[in-house]
C-alpha cells in the first residue's frame, strides 16, 4: 500500500503515522499539549525526531516493529521495515489491530490504516473521504493540498499521506 512513499526518513514516517495516536493521548491526559504541538510541527517541517525519542514515545510500536524486523533479518529502523510495518496487513500494524480482542469492530476499523479517496473538502483543515462502504471526515493537516478524487492514506481520523502521480509524498 505505501511502497511508494518518497522523501521522508523512516523516523518521520513513524512519527506521521503515530501523530493521531499522540493527539488522542493529549485528550487522555497522558501527553502535554505543547509536546504534541512540537511533534506536529516536526511532521509539517520535516524536522527529524531522534530514534531514541521515538522508541521511548512509542514503545509498543517499536517492540512490534523490532519483532517484524527480526523475522525478516533486518533492522527496525530500516526504511523498508518501517514501510512494511505500516502497510503490510498480514504482519504489520493492521494485523496488530485485528488481533485486539478488547475493541469492537468499528473501533478497529478506525485504527487501521486505509487507502481512501477524497470526496469533498470542508475547510483547509478537514475533508471527507470514502473507502469500502465508509465515508468519514478526516483531519487534513498533513495533506493540505488535496482535491476531490485524490487518494490518501488515513489513520485514526487523520490523513497521513497524499498520492501524487501514483506515489505517496508529503504535500
Amino acid at each position: 500500500m505505501i511502497d511508494k512513499i518518497k522523501k521522508d526518513s523512516p523516523e518521520l514516517i513513524v512519527l506521521k503515522f503515530a501523530l493521531p495516536c499522540l493527539a488522542i493521548r493529549v485528550l487522555e491526559g497522558t501527553l502535554a499539549q505543547e509536546q504534541y504541538r512540537s511533534y506536529e510541527s516536526s511532521c509539517l517541517s520535516g524536522k527529524a525526531v531522534s530514534r531514541k525519542e521515538l522508541e521511548e514515545l512509542l514503545p509498543k510500536e517499536h517492540k512490534r516493529r523490532s519483532a517484524l524486523a527480526k523475522k525478516l533479518n533486518s533492522s527496525p529502523w530500516d526504511r523498508e521495515i518501517v514501510k512494511s510495518y505500516w502497510s503490510d496487513s498480514r504482519e504489520g500494524h493492521n494485523s496488530v489491530v485485528n488481533s485486539d480482542e478488547d475493541s469492537p469492530e468499528h473501533v478497529k476499523e478506525f485504527c487501521r490504516v486505509h487507502e481512501a479517496t477524497v470526496v469533498s473538502l470542508k475547510n483547509n483543515q478537514q475533508f471527507r473521504v470514502s473507502y469500502d462502504d465508509v465515508n468519514r471526515e478526516v483531519i487534513g493537516l498533513l495533506t493540505p493540498n488535496v482535491q476531490p478524487g485524490d487518494k490518501v492514506l488515513i489513520h485514526k481520523g487523520f490523513s497521513i499521506y497524499q498520492q501524487i502521480n501514483g506515489e505517496y509524498y508529503l504535500s
Partner: peptide, 8 residues
Amino acid sequence: MCLTIPGK
C-alpha cells in the same frame, strides 16, 4: 494496545 478508544 494502540487502540486507546474510550467506552462508557
